[in-house]
Design a binder for these strands. Structure first.
Lengths: 216, 216
DNA sequence: GACGTCATTCTTGTATACACAAATATTGAT
DNA sequence: ATCAATATTTGTGTATACAAGAATGACGTC
């Protein structure tokens, strides 16, 4: 319970939002939340203020908090930025690669290979996360790593949707292979380019998905 | 006073931190802040929670809030990320440029020209900010624009230091000219490249500065 | 019958009070 | 005199109370 109710609540509510338990646009009533978690309104408010600062909810003065609905277009924009940041991480990783990072990337990459071969998209989802995190870490830039991790978390629910798309799992893994090759070869520019498209594709796929859903 | 004491305090304290009024490492006493701003502890706490979520301060459980000291290395990392994001903004701006953005960029650019010609580094500092903001806006990506603006704000104090460096003002303006040309020519890759180095240089200059100060 | 205004109610915003943990000072013993 | 243990103080963490603004519904008027 993290020693601090406010922070615990922030994570709890954040997860609830990211897992769509609290739907976009939904109003978050402080009293209801306080009762639900068995605390008073004060720490609930603190959690909400933080989520507002992060950008997950919006608190309109005297009118309460609502979960922000990013909307397809904005999600696409977020993927666009994510692609850029991951590209930077990859290029730094290629240039600065040390033994520990090399091993971490290789290990997570081979786990991806196994789940891809097994066609287990749930397992691949988690292994894929670890793979990308390994690249962030290999960039040796703490700030970049934090920014990537934060955005990655926010895009989590949308990423998940895409792995269900036909063949995405195997093509994703093939892209990983090329990325790993570039990083291990120390080719920063190539790693950047590959990662940018690898992540960018997810944004495009997402908007395709939304478009096809809207068509029905 | 923004209708909301908590938010007002957040901005107030944020400015105080970014202008070094509250020095890095300094402890922020809730009661002292409450007295200083003539409010109770509650909104002060809310403001601090938000600043913690943003990453400007750190609240350690039961031990209060301290202003985070980024340290030269982390500031360099921040410039590195900023360079990447501005590069993306520039490339999008070049591709998506419309009339309004074209005019906004041209207008801020010419203001920069005037202050650069006058050698007025204070004026240039502000005009430069507007120039960069115009590019963010021209990217037509709301999310990117927000991310850029936020990072820009956090790097503000460090940027300012550099304009005092000899000749930086005029070389900065020359770089602007090339950037504007690339954007107006619709050359996204070139705009990206130029902006990346334009901003990246600031990070390098900053670490040079720190190194030279540490040498003494 | 519809629109506007007023009152009631509900929710948020702020203050204050109390509880508890940590840091510090003081006192006693070795 | 120094170190340790305890007490005091200081400051954070949570709850509750109170005030003020917004939403909603009812009543009156056009």
């Amino acid at each position: 319970m993290s020693e601090n109710v406010g922070r615990w609540l922030r994570d709890e509510i954040e997860n609830a939002i990211l897992s769509y338990e609290f739907a976009p646009g939904e109003r978050l009533d402080e009293t209801v939340l306080a009762n639900r978690f068995g605390v008073s309104r004060t720490p609930v408010r603190e959690a909400l203020m933080q989520l507002d600062a992060i950008g997950l909810i919006e608190i309109r003065p005297r009118r309460g908090a609502v979960v922000i609905d990013p909307g397809p277009h904005r999600i696409y924009e977020m993927f666009e930025v994510m692609a850029e940041l991951e590209g930077l991480a990859g290029s730094l990783a290629a240039r600065r690669l040390d033994k520990a990072s090399h091993e971490a990337i290789a290990a997570t990459h081979s786990r991806c290979e196994q789940s891809a071969a097994a066609g287990d998209s749930d397992a691949y989802y988690y292994d894929n996360e670890e793979f990308h995190k390994a690249i962030y870490a290999a960039s040796r830039s703490d700030f970049l790593q934090e920014q990537c991790a934060q955005l990655h978390r926010r895009l989590r629910p949308y990423r998940r949707l895409q792995l269900r798309v036909r063949n995405r799992l195997s093509t994703s893994f093939l892209e990983h292979c090329a990325i790993v090759d570039a990083i291990f070869a120390g080719d920063g520019d190539e790693a950047r380019r590959l990662l940018r498209t690898h992540v960018g594709i997810q944004g495009e796929r997402f908007s395709d998905l939304v478009a096809s859903m809207a068509a029905r």
